[in-house]
């Protein structure tokens, strides 16, 4: 059974259509890139999948059932903006996540954080922006979920941080779980993608396996994207 099925999904904000008739299927065990320029509707789509927005039309099914309380347990979402309480320490934050999520694996989080060499009594406000992004990613990836949704995890980070993020993603990619990653920084991430979705002005223009696309065009995913959108 498909992990996620999206049928005729549309979302408007007032007069403005953010998404128009989106149809997608996400299978288990895949890493999928949701690729589009700024304003293409990537975040709107991700928020609809996470049940943080109400669709204007259409439906999102998780393992065949409408999304809701049950699907939220199985979908771990990394939003683009930080939501952590910066007055808390890392340790307090870990404890809060443990209380909040049944499926939060604190040992996995500690293991992933170990490479960062961060003292757990450090206040989040004292961490650099890059460190805060890494911490948030670890908190999301340490949940034992079936679908991980990462919204622009590479936005505005330096190359070393980017490598850590890609490594953390690969390290935590469990058998059977899927990862949906939105980004406009395609070249940095395309090597780890199984599938790609091109989104433009609220519409899905292309879905393909990354290697098939390279094979058919002799171009990287990034070059295909640039060619299609002339940016």
């Amino acid at each position: 059974m498909a992990l996620l099925t999206i049928n005729h999904l549309s979302k408007s904000f007032g007069e403005e259509a953010a998404l128009t008739d989106v149809n997608l299927t996400i299978e288990p065990g895949r890493i999928i890139g949701l690729l589009g320029k700024n304003g293409a509707g990537k975040t709107t789509l991700l928020k609809l999948i996470c049940d943080l927005l109400t669709p204007t039309d259409g439906e999102v099914l998780f393992e065949g059932a409408p999304i809701g309380v049950e699907s939220k347990k199985e979908i771990a979402f990394l939003p683009e903006r930080t939501y952590l309480d910066k007055s808390m320490t890392i340790q307090q934050t870990l404890r809060m996540f443990q209380d909040f999520y049944d499926n939060f694996d604190v040992n996995k989080a500690k293991k992933l954080l170990a490479d960062l060499d961060l003292p757990e009594d450090r206040q989040i406000s004292k961490l650099s922006k890059g460190m805060q992004e890494k911490l948030q990613l670890v908190l999301v990836m340490a949940r034992k979920a079936k679908l991980y949704i990462l919204d622009e995890p590479l936005g505005g980070v330096d190359p070393a941080t980017r490598d850590y993020i890609l490594d953390t993603i690969l390290r935590s990619f469990d058998d059977g779980a899927s990862l949906l990653i939105s980004t406009h920084l395609i070249a940095d991430i395309e090597r780890i993608l199984d599938d790609v979705i091109f989104l433009d002005r609220g519409k899905v223009l292309l879905t393909a396996q990354a290697d098939d696309l390279r094979n058919e065009t002799g171009l990287s995913v990034d070059d295909n994207f640039r060619r299609m959108f002339k940016c």
């Binding site: 090597r191 094979n215 990287s220 070059d223």
Partner: peptide, 11 residues
Amino acid sequence: QFDNERPIYIQ
């Protein structure tokens, strides 16, 4: 070492 122009699988 990879380039992104050819299928990663083949490389």
